[in-house]
Write a protein that binds this DNA or RNA. Structure first.
Length: 448
RNA sequence: GGCGACAUAGCCAAGCGGUAAGGCAGAGGUCUGCAAAACCUUUAUUCGUCGGUUCGAUUCCGACUGUCGCCUCCA
């Protein structure tokens, strides 16, 4: 299977060739754990989960790392508002994040490093940069990356530093306004770490560079993240890592588009976000995944109730076919042609909307093999094939006699043209959360 | 001001040189006592506007209009 991805670095679709045959190293930027995650984070998680699942399906040996930023001013500020230790807040929010990830059926990353557990390697990283003259200490005990020493700075964002109007505040201690912090000095006792540069905390950009080096070495195959991270975060990661290692940092840079709400990017600071948890109270995880996958991962996507309801309706309809599928033998009865179309769609920069269209076309044929293939594809796309049925399909066993009695009474009433009684029985079922499905042969009860 | 992305039916959304996938909603039908469910059929002579290239453009090029993102923490 020939796969290609849009590489932010070249701004082109490129053929995917791994550094090492059949092996893929992927790093995607994880959350800063100070508050609940929202649908924007869900999209990011689902997109990278999709990438990992697809590459594994394509027979690659994938190792995926996603970090947790647990050292950050926002965590410290929020913790102090709540009068708890930052570590406790980070732990609470990490658990919430994992709970969301589990609910959304996101694969477990192979590595999930925390900043707080990798201070040592970050300090080593900084010292090596200082030794190579790519970083300098200030009188106040901070350490900054010397951007002027790295000529390639700006290659990811394609920025022209001469013409940039920097909004970065001028700081007296920095050699240049565009230099960024590798270590920030803090004398306060609240939440600091010892280092050769004095007590303080590492700069945000550093943890990803340090962790990638720790788990994957100097170069990785794919680095992913939200497109809002391109600058300055990813640009700075490149600067640090390539300055130190003297070789390319990531071969492919993939970025997911933003979730929009009311025409604006969903974000904490705009206070216009819907948390994953809130959304899951209204819609199933499969519906949320479907909503995310209906758009190509690089496009902006609007979160609207209408779109989510639409996705939920679609999933409900789609999963009614699941009862005809033997999940244990799903891999043994596949339509190769459909699967081939799926491969083509997904290998073209993860065209999930097209992949979903292939699923619907497969279901239309009324062929069991095609139906089976459709669900096999849904499984690869990360849909949970047990979720939407276990709750909705009612197991009649315990109520069989009672329900059959009522259905018989209704049938008799209808035969006697006693529609008042017949409708009363139907309404009663409805009030109790059940629906009577009439067909020519029989009537059955399903849970709504 | 710099960099970049996007504009396709009521809504969501693929396609990106050969004459518009798919989903939701809607409409009609079959079924029904009436419904619901299910099933079948149906819904853009047209892809923001104006030019250009081409035998042919939604797809390429240019201009314009509009929307959005990044340049500050951000998935």
């Amino acid at each position: 299977m020939e796969i290609s991805f849009y590489n932010t670095l070249s701004r082109k679709i490129e053929k995917f060739e791994t550094l090492e045959k059949n092996k893929v190293s992927i790093y995607s930027c994880g959350p800063t754990v100070y508050d609940s995650s929202h649908i924007g984070h869900a999209r990011s998680a689902i997109v990278w989960d999709l990438l990992v699942r697809f590459l594994r399906y394509a027979k690659y040996e994938v190792l995926w790392a996603r970090n947790i930023t647990d050292i950050d001013d926002k965590i410290i500020n929020r913790a102090s508002e709540l009068k708890i230790h930052p570590e406790k807040l980070a732990r609470i929010e990490s658990f919430k994040f994992w709970k969301d990830m589990y609910a959304l059926n996101i694969s477990t990353p192979d590595f999930e490093p925390k900043a707080s557990e990798n201070i040592g390697i970050m300090i080593n990283f900084i010292e090596a940069l200082i030794n190579k003259n790519f970083a300098y200490r200030t009188e106040t005990g901070d350490v900054y990356f010397r951007v002027s020493a790295f000529p390639n700075y700006g290659k990811l964002k394609n920025l022209n530093r001469e013409k940039e109007i920097s909004r970065i505040e001028h700081t007296q201690n920095k050699e240049s306004d565009s230099d960024f912090a590798l270590w920030k000095n803090f004398d306060e006792t609240s939440y600091c770490f010892d280092s050769p540069f004095g007590k303080g905390r590492p700069g945000w950009h550093l943890e990803c560079s340090a962790m990638i080096k720790k788990y994957f070495g100097n170069t990785i195959d794919i680095h992913g993240g939200g497109e809002d991270l391109i600058f300055p975060h990813h640009e700075n990661e490149i600067a640090q890592s390539e300055a130190l290692n003297g070789c390319p940092f990531a071969k492919y840079w993939l970025h997911n588009g933003m979730i929009m709400i009311n025409g604006r990017k969903m974000s904490k600071s705009e206070n216009n976000y819907i948390t994953i948890n809130e959304s899951l109270e209204k819609y199933s995880a499969n519906a949320i995944r479907f909503f995310i996958l209906t758009a190509h991962y690089r496009q902006a996507l609007n979160y609207t109730e209408e779109a989510l309801i639409s996705s939920q309706n679609t999933i409900n309809k789609l999963f009614k076919n699941l009862k005809n599928i033997d999940l244990n033998n799903i891999e043994n009865n596949l339509n190769k042609e459909i699967l081939n179309n799926f491969d083509l769609a997904m290998s073209n920069d993860l065209n999930s909307p097209k992949a979903l269209a292939i699923v619907f076309e497969a279901i239309k044929t009324n062929d069991l093999k095609d139906l089976n293939t459709a669900f096999y594809i849904l499984k690869i796309l990360g849909f949970n094939l047990s979720e939407d049925t276990s709750n909705k399909e009612f197991n009649l066993d315990n109520f069989e006699d009672l329900f059959n009695l009522l259905l018989d009474l209704r049938k008799q009433a209808k035969e006697n043209k006693n529609y008042e009684l017949a409708d009363k029985i139907r309404d009663s079922f409805s009030k109790a959360g059940f629906q009577i499905k009439d067909s020519k042969e029989k009537s059955e009860v399903i849970r709504i």
